[in-house]
């Protein structure tokens, strides 16, 4: 019970912090779109809009990667549909804020958007998790891949959220500070989960489900919990994405996105929280950093280099960059 209270406290802390940060950084920053298309605001003196958006993307990818780590790395459930949960979060939060709270203050929008996104994704995660529990290994991966794509195609066919055109004019209220705070909190929450009773149970299931069962762990229960927590966080990432870009389309949430998140996990080291963060960092920054190369050569070889890097890391360091290790500030001791 104490742990739940602490987790709850962290969330409260986040909302308070986000509000404070918003005041500190100045209300001028509420409209990110203006920052991009109109003359630069005060904030751009610190960070250019390009770096600003890359950093937000990086943080969102960290949330995704870390939440997938809970499923893939810790519980050993190989899923390939994370983009689907992100899509649910993005579309749900965007619709709730656009249709229900278009003129509400920032705090209301933030709470309504993030919570509805997380809960919607969590509920779908619960449904998918319970229906897929019979499956293991690659088969689970295939089914979740299928679910992810179906979610995407369903959104593609709903006209109210833009259909194939994508959803535009979503209120942009997320800023770098809020996303950063939430990322830190999610990392802390996942660290606490993985070092606590639930995390140990997940690890036990990954190592040997039968033995875990004999030890008094209910594998079904734990697996569903992992699914719900992970999809909840992916939903929140989707919500942040929608409200920092201001535009979402189903093209963002294809299975390629799911693969990208898996790749982040594996490149960093499957089962390592630090690895998940590191992988997200590398795979987000690398394609952007390679834009310079494109300027020199005149050819768009950055994605080719990106793909080659992925293959080479897998061949030269199969356990991932971090292996099973954690950074000091994230280790359990």
């Amino acid at each position: 019970m104490g742990k739940i209270n602490k987790t709850f406290l962290l969330f409260v802390l986040f909302f308070v912090g986000a509000v404070c940060l918003n005041f500190i950084m100045g209300g001028f920053h509420l409209n990110l779109a203006a920052l991009f298309y109109e003359k630069p605001g005060r904030f751009t003196g610190l960070i250019s809009p390009y770096y600003y958006s890359v950093m937000i993307l990086l943080l969102i990818n960290v949330i995704l990667s870390v939440s997938l780590m809970l499923l893939n790395g810790l519980t050993g459930l190989f899923t390939m549909g994370h983009a689907g949960f992100m899509a649910i979060g993005a579309y749900c939060s965007a619709s709730v804020v656009t249709f229900l709270f278009p003129d509400a203050p920032f705090v209301v929008q933030l709470i309504a958007g993030s919570l509805s996104a997380g809960i919607a994704a969590g509920v779908v995660g619960f449904l998918i998790g319970t229906s897929c529990l019979r499956l293991a290994g690659d088969y689970l991966g295939m089914v979740t891949l299928g679910f992810g794509e179906i979610i995407r195609i369903v959104f593609l066919n709903i006209d109210a959220v833009g259909g194939a055109r994508g959803m535009t004019d979503i209120p942009v209220y997320m800023n770098l500070g809020s996303v950063f705070l939430m990322t830190i909190i999610i990392i802390i929450v996942i660290k606490r989960i993985s070092n606590g009773r639930l995390g140990r149970a997940m690890l036990a299931i990954k190592e040997n489900e039968m033995a875990a069962n004999m030890m008094g762990i209910n594998p079904l229960n734990i697996k569903v919990k992992a699914f719900v927590i992970s999809s909840f966080m992916a939903g929140i990432a989707g919500s942040f994405f929608a409200h920092s870009e201001g535009y979402i389309s189903t093209q963002t949430f294809t299975f390629a996105k799911s693969f990208e998140v898996i790749a982040m996990n594996v490149v960093g080291g499957l089962g390592s929280l630090s690895g998940a963060i590191m992988g997200a960092g590398i795979l987000t920054v690398l394609p952007e950093a390679l834009r310079k190369v494109q300027d020199v050569t005149g050819l768009d070889i950055r994605m080719v280099i990106y793909a080659l890097t992925m293959i080479l890391i897998m061949i030269l360091r199969p356990q991932g960059l971090m292996g099973n290790k954690e950074w000091k500030w994230l280790s359990s001791k």
């Binding site: 190989f78 690659d138 693969f259 898996i262 790749a263 594996v266 490149v267 499957l270 050819l299 768009d300 070889i301 994605m303 080719v304 990106y306 793909a307 080659l308 992925m310 293959i311 897998m314 061949i315 199969p318």
Partner: peptide
């Protein structure tokens, strides 16, 4: 071939990498 003994997820990621490589290499 270098990954014959590696965990299956690694080979899977490599396959995805090869797929990306062929797609973007193809565009090039």
């Amino acid at each position: 071939r270098p990954l014959r003994k590696a965990p299956r997820i690694n080979i899977l990621i490599t396959a995805i990498g090869v797929s990306l490589f062929l797609e973007y290499g193809g565009q090039l």
